[in-house]
Amino acid sequence: MSAARGLTVPFIDHLGIEFVRYGQGESHLRMVPKPEHFNGFAMAHGGVVMTLLDVTMAFAALEPEQPDVGAITVEMKTTFLRPSKGTLNGYGKVVHRTKSLVFIEATVCNEAGDISAKASGTFVLKQRPASASAAAVSNH
């Protein structure tokens, strides 16, 4: 699934994160947590939810027309509001862009459609090294 931009990210694939859409400063990603992604309360582990928020924000920063550009997390703040159960949907939106940084907010909604977690983050956009693009091609 992470090959949406020509680059495979094994951890994103392991979590089963699906890219629904991204571009124009917004993103929508989805995942269905499996039992191995749960905490002791039978809900998605906070680290799993944070990863979904992180990837959702990164994709809000990216544009499909620039497949060789990646977003790197500089900082991130997360707030957990309620259990993340069932199919989780992540929604990201760019708040502000500068020459070198992108400021983004994201929410994760649980299966009932309630916001279960929120995050804000700062990302820097970087050209991916040619070696990453070559590795992506050889992994397919």
Rank of each mutant, 00 (worst) to 15 (best):
K77V: 14
D54H: 13
P83N: 08
F80A: 02
L81M: 14
T73G: 09
L53I: 08
E63S: 07
D54E: 12
T79C: 12
P64F: 05
P64Y: 07
K85T: 13
P67L: 07
P67S: 03
N89V: 11
F80T: 07
F80G: 07
D54Q: 11
T73L: 06
G86C: 03
M76F: 14
G47K: 04
E63C: 02
E65P: 00
M57I: 06
T56P: 12
A60Q: 03
V74L: 12
N89F: 12
D54L: 10
T78V: 15
G70T: 12
V69C: 08
D54K: 04
M50S: 12
L52R: 00
A60K: 02
R82L: 07
D68P: 06
V74G: 09
L88F: 06
A60C: 01
I72C: 03
G47L: 05
L62M: 02
S84R: 01
I72N: 05
E75Q: 12
L52I: 08
T79V: 14
L53D: 05
G86Q: 02
A61T: 03
E75L: 06
E75H: 13
T56S: 10
Q66F: 07
S84E: 10
L81S: 03
K77T: 15
P64C: 00
P83Q: 10
A60W: 05
G46K: 03
L81A: 07
A58D: 11
A60F: 03
T73S: 13
T78W: 15
D68Y: 11
P83H: 10
N89M: 08
G47E: 04
F80C: 06
N89S: 04
A61Q: 03
E63T: 01
A61D: 05
V48M: 09
N89L: 12
D68R: 09
Q66I: 01
G46R: 01
S84A: 14
L53A: 05
E75R: 01
T56E: 11
A60E: 03
V48Y: 08
E75N: 15
G70N: 06
F59S: 00
K85F: 10
T78A: 14
P67V: 06
M76D: 10
P64T: 01
T79E: 15
A71Y: 07
L62A: 01
N89R: 04
G46M: 04
L52C: 02
E63I: 04
G86F: 09
S84Q: 08
A60D: 01
V74C: 06
G47N: 03
E63N: 03
G47Q: 08
